[in-house]
Amino acid sequence: MKVERLHRKNNLGLAGWIRGGRYGLERYAYTLHRITGLGILLYFLLHIFATSSRIWGPEFWEKTMDLFEKPVFKFGEYLVFVAFAYHALNGIRLFITELGFGMGKPQRPVIPYKNAVRRQRPLLIVAMIIAFVLIVFGGLDFYLLGN
């Protein structure tokens, strides 16, 4: 039997990707991983063109690199570094957890329920701490040491 649908659509759409709402940390990690992944991809595509400019010889290369010496670009590059540090560290966590490791075994459901997401949370926190350290060191390198 075909029912005529007067139902109202109620999908969250893109807001469902972006708004972590009241869910756990991993839900926010997911959104950030996606944004940083796309950001790095954009940078990477430009990067291929920029670095391939070396086929026109050292002078052209220097010119291209001078262009990127502007503070805006420098800050942009640092943002990419930050995105990369996050994506890489969170990526390691996802590599482990999405392959089902580091979360123990299925258990009999006894109240209060525990779940694998909670069991892997220390991993997320450690990854974020390392990412933070990398971001700080990267910042030192970008702005203080390397001139």
Binding site: F81, F84, A88, F137, G138, L140, D141, F142, L145, G146
Partner: peptide, 14 residues
């Protein structure tokens, strides 16, 4: 690979 790349390029001063 990119780990190596990043260390050479961005943690160069360190």
């Amino acid at each position: 690979l990119l780990g190596i790349h990043m260390f050479i390029m961005h943690l160069d001063a360190i």
